[in-house]
Design a binder for these strands. Structure first.
Lengths: 342, 342
DNA sequence: CATTCCTTTGGTATCGCTACCATCCTATAG
DNA sequence: CTATAGGATGGTAGCGATACCAAAGGAATG
């Protein structure tokens, strides 16, 4: 009974025109019925819905985006997808976006600035409607691109002095400083510090600066040989602790700039039979869930990763909804969680 | 000196036409120069490159995709972004895709089948060129959509009896069975089992079936009260172990279907002073890096998460390159890692 | 009953790019 | 020197939707 004799089936091939024809309405009505059902009469809506269901029609958002010059995809660049730190932030972002009909395109820069640039470029070529960068140090080209495209951007992971656009984070400097002061106040005098790799990573650098600043404030001797750089990993944490204790037998606390390092160190103590905090106290950065459950539980900094994700996404959504652009720098703060390891 | 008097600047506004005008060539030549530089003369390429650089031009891939009916985005649905298990798979996928000029759109189903459906629909509306689903049980609508759109799909997380298209995984049934047999061979006779939630989760179910199958093979008594269901978490693992030991003081090993549960149980033992494996042996599913470093290190199943990601992405890429569609089911296998906890 | 106004519907012109085919030019062969 | 092939370029017509404006329909008003 169909007109052309050739009846298209199977969502992949049908377009809005076909639906319009079969519903006996214009394509514009179909478009409206799908996007703002309220702007169309009940009768029309029913006809459209019926045709849509009959064909299993899926609107082509690519065409929609091109035509409306609005996309519904947000781009995210993290230093490492694998790192569980980012996972809870990503999850929070994803949730908020989804509740607002947006999608998430995710990319991994491997902690390399040059890769960040390539990825930002690729994401902008996909015409993402917003960008979240877990990094506050960018190449010149990235800054230019962001400026010239005018895409809303959230920087996170650190509080930049001069944000590209909006920033949501805690201060790595203040957090590391606070923990070091905390250790000093607990009476520790020889406090070691194990940093994550410093290359292309403003966050690591800020943490180290915070550590030094606190020592100075407390008039504790600043000894560079108490600072070790280690890639993040359980073994590396254990190794670092081992080396520190060997070279500085009088060390009484070690502050690890990464949670996995700290846990690795704790396990090393368990293996060697060193009492924590009796022989050496251990403090960590970042509140991995694990830290609450180890024996002893590890003193750490709680950073509201989830809140960072949520608020970042919310800011983005507001801006897309028309909020007037304004440079924002939101400090979500942090919290010292004193547990049994110090 | 410019012609129209109005000189466009700033990557966001310039299009291929503008570049063509300023380079003194046709838009087609620009398009070709950018996509297949080899198909264009050196002279043209140079003119185009110069104009592209002058304007900081970024091609609009949305328009490109619409026009060519090819997209360069792959969709991924995982049950929970936060769960670190998926992280290494996602990372591997992301790497392979990127090396092939593809991007990754990621979504979180929260372990809910209905949400998976909505997400698959949304991703297909974005016209992703491929789909990875970390789940092998799907709603009817999902199966229809996949069939009718003809998009290549990888299922993973389990080996489905009848894959939608391609599947890359290990067998949860065989893995759980193997570990249970392993425990039995080590001489354990009262083996408890702690499963993750079974609802909407074929993987959990298969694991439990594998456990029961092994017990039967070994002619060990099958006692349903030795099986507990627990949401994944450190505390939950500890609780489950506590309950099992209380109700079955003669229990000599517990097999946890989730790694976090197992670690939680191990910590609980440390707190209570129960020797592992002296009082009770602990075995885990899934080789979280952590398990190798705890004291004692935990016996577990190594599942090649990264390989799964890599091969999934590779299959997808091959298919997009024109490999003839064929139903595939790739079993990547697993490995029992015997450590000190059993 | 005619006029006005508001709501609902439809037509047309893009959005920025690529497919496809026509054209042109140069190189090689006859 | 002409014929022909083959590679490089350009023109045109979409891809599948939306924006914008025009037209039509219906209710409210004098």
């Amino acid at each position: 009974m169909s007109v052309g004799g050739k009846r298209k089936r199977g969502g992949g091939q049908v377009n809005m025109h076909d639906i319009a024809r079969h519903a006996g309405v214009s394509p514009m009505t179909v478009s409206r019925a799908l996007r703002e059902p309220g702007s169309v009469s009940e009768k029309m809506r029913r006809k459209v819905d019926a045709a849509v269901r009959e064909f299993g029609y899926l609107p082509n958002r690519i065409a929609g985006s091109l035509s409306s010059k609005r996309s519904n995809v947000v781009g995210l660049v993290v230093p490492s997808i694998r790192n569980s730190l980012y996972a809870s932030m990503v999850q929070a972002i994803s949730e908020v976006l989804r509740a607002n009909g947006l999608h998430l395109m995710i990319a991994d820069s491997g902690h390399r600035l040059a890769d960040e640039e390539a990825l930002v470029e690729a994401l902008l070529a996909q015409r993402v409607c917003g960008l979240v960068l877990h990094n506050t140090r960018h190449s010149k080209r990235v800054r230019e691109l962001v400026r010239s495209t005018g895409v809303p951007v959230i920087e996170t992971g650190n509080l930049p002095a001069d944000p590209l656009d909006m920033a949501v984070s805690y201060s790595n400097f203040e957090a590391a400083r606070a923990m070091t002061l905390h250790l000093a106040r607990l009476g520790y005098r020889r406090i070691g510090f194990v940093t994550l790799p410093l290359r292309d990573n403003d966050r690591s650098e800020q943490r180290r600066r915070g550590y030094f600043a606190a020592l100075k404030e407390q008039k504790l001797p600043v000894d560079p040989s108490l600072v070790l750089e280690a890639p993040g990993g359980f073994s590396e944490g254990g190794d670092a602790l081992g080396r520190l204790i060997q070279t500085h037998p009088d060390i009484d606390a070690v502050f690890f700039a990464g949670d996995v390092l700290a846990v690795g160190a704790l396990f090393e103590c368990q293996r060697r039979g060193w009492a924590v905090p009796g022989r050496v106290a251990i403090a960590s950065f970042d509140d991995l869930d694990l830290l609450r459950h180890t024996v002893p539980a590890v003193t750490t900094l709680r950073l509201p990763r989830q809140e960072i994700g949520r608020r970042s996404a919310e800011l983005l959504v507001n801006r897309l909804r028309g909020a007037t652009p304004e440079r924002l720098k939101i400090d979500v703060g942090f919290e010292i969680v004193q547990r049994d390891s110090t």
